[in-house]
Amino acid sequence: MLNRTTWLEKGFDAFNTLFLIVLMVVTIYPVLYVALASVSEAERMMGHNGLLLKPLGFTLGAYKSVFDNPMILRGYGNTFFVVIVGLVLNIALTAFGAYALSRKSLRYRKRIMLFIVFTMFFNGGLIPFYFTVKGVGLANSLWALIIPQAINTFNLILMKTAFEAIPDSLEESAKMDGAHDFIILFRIILPLSMPVVAVMMLYYGVSHWNSWFHAMIFLQDRSMYPLQLVLREILLQGEVSAMQGGATAGDIAMLSVTLKYATIIVATVPILLVYPFLQKYFVKGALIGAIKG
């Protein structure tokens, strides 16, 4: 019986290993395809079908064309401003809200949470949202991409749950030593909750980095466009011809084959470089406080 159990366990482990390898290949290959296509020669890519396991030639012409557009660097600057300032505001306000809601002494805490959770399922819609943002004077401003998204309800609940998992005895000891709420939050609660803070940074950061819809709605001045909206213009609104100047239609069509892959890499690589530094906190931070004992 023991040998049979061992054999079944080994078979199960082998199946899991094979399945995960296949899943890894299926997940990684599209990224690899985009990276290889972005440095391939455009004329050879136009006639290529099927798998791509190595570059078809090698050229950085697509990347040169992307960065020749002055809007790319401006878009990077706008996006970094939104990400950095937005992250500071996101983490600060989410932490303040989560700390208050995690205190058992807060009056009407359950009722307040009911109203907050309600916003996850119901909202006023896009038109009232637009007029609200415009009415407070944020239209055509980068602050329209930051302030309305200052707190995400799901992230607030996640951080609140993490704060609730910290023993009350720590807070009580701090209060006996004369600590007030700001000291408790910044010197006790947040240092013990760094995994969930890292997850909040990842969630909010990726959201800001990938955001283009709100920019398309609220921004009329092209100099304020974030990177994603600039890249959207390149791919969907004929910015290829604007970058190439006097290039022929055939040259533009040929270059666009690799250009679309280069724009994907340009938009994706920075956030991918940040993820490994936060990955070790991700699972622990996302699940912290999920199990009560």
Rank of each mutant, 00 (worst) to 15 (best):
M200W: 04
D177L: 01
V196G: 09
Y204G: 05
I184F: 07
D181Y: 12
H208S: 14
S173C: 09
I183K: 15
V206N: 11
S207V: 02
G178N: 12
R187Q: 14
A215Y: 01
E172W: 08
M176G: 03
M176L: 15
M194V: 10
D177V: 00
P195H: 07
F213L: 14
L185R: 05
Q220D: 14
V206W: 11
M194S: 05
V196F: 09
V197E: 00
V199E: 02
F182G: 00
D177I: 01
M201Q: 03
M176V: 14
L185N: 04
L170W: 12
H208T: 05
H214K: 10
I188F: 13
F213P: 06
Y203V: 07
H180E: 14
M200E: 13
S207T: 08
V196T: 15
D221Y: 01
L190F: 03
S193L: 02
I188V: 07
D177K: 00
S173E: 13
H208E: 10
F218G: 03
H208D: 11
L219E: 06
D177F: 00
I217K: 12
V206G: 06
H208C: 13
A174E: 10
M200S: 12
G178L: 10
S193P: 05
V196I: 15
F186A: 09
L219T: 02
L192H: 04
A174R: 08
F218E: 06
G178M: 10
L190K: 02
